Amino acid sequence: MGWLQSLFSPLKKLWFRLNSAQRKKRGIYILYEDVKSCQCEDVQILWSILVESNPPHLRLKQ
């Protein structure tokens, strides 16, 4: 039974890592939609600073 657990352990870790990455992207997208709908110029400026400071693969289209 230990061999079965050793087989599935890396797959389980990979699954959790991929699932948490998708959740983060969804959360960022929801935040992006909220910021996009906000009319406050300060919020728009802070969002642009945040987007520019992140790596290109995490950036959302503006």
Rank of each mutant, 00 (worst) to 15 (best):
G2E: 05
K13L: 03
S53A: 11
C38V: 05
I49G: 08
E41G: 10
R17M: 07
L11H: 04
I49K: 14
L11K: 02
G27P: 02
E33S: 13
G2I: 07
S6F: 08
L4C: 06
E41L: 15
I30A: 12
D42V: 11
Y29H: 13
V35F: 11
L50M: 05
I49S: 10
Y29P: 00
D34P: 01
V35R: 10
L46G: 03
I45E: 14
I49R: 12
F8V: 13
S9P: 00
L18S: 09
F16K: 09
V43L: 15
S20L: 11
K12Q: 14
W47E: 08
W47A: 15
L46M: 13
I30T: 14
L4D: 05
D42S: 15
S48Y: 07
W3E: 09
K24W: 15
I28P: 01
F16H: 12
P10S: 03
K36S: 15
C40E: 09
S9Y: 04
L31T: 11
P55A: 02
E52W: 07
R23Q: 13
I28T: 11
Y32H: 08
I49L: 10
I45V: 15
Q62V: 00
S53M: 13
D34A: 12
I30W: 06
K24D: 12
C38T: 08
L31R: 10
N54Y: 05
F16M: 09
I28C: 09
K13P: 01
H57V: 05
A21P: 00
F8N: 07
L4F: 06
L46D: 04
P56E: 06
R59S: 01
S9I: 01
L11R: 05
V43F: 12
E52I: 08
I49C: 08
F16I: 12
P56Q: 04
K13W: 03
D42G: 12
E41T: 14
L60N: 02
L31A: 09
R59F: 00
R23E: 15
E52K: 14
Q62H: 00
L60W: 00
A21R: 05
L46S: 10
I28M: 06
Y32M: 02
F8H: 06
L11P: 01
C40G: 04
A21W: 01
K61D: 02
G2V: 02
K25W: 06
K25S: 13
V35M: 13
R17L: 10
Q44L: 13
E41A: 12
W3F: 09
K25N: 13
R17P: 01
I28H: 11
S20M: 03
S20P: 01
V43H: 15
L31Q: 09
E52G: 10
C40Y: 10
R17H: 06
C38D: 15
L50D: 10
S9E: 09
N54A: 03
F16Q: 10
Q5H: 08
L4V: 07
P55Q: 00
P55M: 00
K61H: 00
